[in-house]
Computed example of a mutant assay.
Amino acid sequence: MSSRVGFRFLNSTRFAFRNASAPFRRPGAQGFRFQSSEAGADAAQQQSTFQRMWNSPIGVKTVHFWAPVMKWCLVIAGMADFARPADKLSLTQNAALMGTGAIWTRWCLIIKPRNVLLATVNFFLGCVGAVQVTRIFMWQRSQTGSTIEAAKELEHEAADTVKAVAHAAEGAVEKAEKKVVEKST
């Protein structure tokens, strides 16, 4: 019984939404079907630049426009990191930005409708990531000499600590053995 109520509600809302969209339809358009290419070409010649941009499938009313606009914030933030020292940058984060930019640049040119604005922002995002990854690798490479010396010092300190712990453990074992021998005699 409850499934029938839900089914009736679904059908009534679908009917209401279909009829509610009638005032927003273009004159002469049937349902949500698009006009032929000839009619679209004639209409495009009569429209201003703003109207063509507004009614475009990748125009201002769509996510195809606003997603790249918002993604420029990532590019600007990456460019702001150019002023930061390389040792404070995250290699994994910048490698992810570089990979994301490369993958999505290609993908934006394959999908339909082709979104050149999104491809552009992804290209620059990949470039910013590549510059930052290069800076990080160059900084790490310049630190290899001091890193090797620091690692050798750390190795000697660790070896001395291990020897001291081993010596203390041997002393504790000897004491325990003496106590066992004394108790048994």
Rank of each mutant, 00 (worst) to 15 (best):
A159R: 02
P23W: 10
R4L: 14
R14D: 01
D160F: 00
K112E: 15
Q143Y: 05
R8E: 14
V180D: 02
M1H: 06
E155W: 07
A16E: 03
R33A: 05
L117I: 11
K61S: 12
A158C: 07
V69T: 11
G99Y: 04
K179D: 10
T147M: 12
V173H: 07
T100P: 02
V60G: 05
M53R: 08
A77V: 01
E177G: 00
E157G: 11
A169R: 13
V75F: 06
V180Y: 04
M79T: 01
S21W: 10
F82P: 03
A77P: 01
I136P: 07
H156V: 15
Q47A: 09
A130M: 11
S146T: 06
T105Y: 06
Q30Y: 06
P23Y: 10
V131C: 09
A80H: 09
Q30K: 12
A39G: 05
H156P: 00
A102R: 00
A172T: 02
G28V: 06
P113E: 02
G129E: 03
V60S: 09
K88R: 12
C108H: 08
K61Y: 04
V133H: 03
G78T: 08
Q45M: 14
S36L: 00
R14Q: 01
Q47T: 03
A169V: 15
G171Q: 15
Q143G: 02
G129F: 02
F123D: 05
D42Q: 08
V128F: 01
N94D: 15
I58E: 03
A158W: 06
V121R: 00
K112Y: 11
R14F: 09
T185E: 09
F15D: 05
A159Y: 03
V60H: 05
F32H: 10
M98Y: 03
A67L: 10
R52S: 15
K88F: 04
G6R: 06
W139F: 10
E38L: 04
L117Q: 10
M70H: 00
A86I: 09
L91S: 01
V5Y: 05
Q51V: 09
F124L: 11
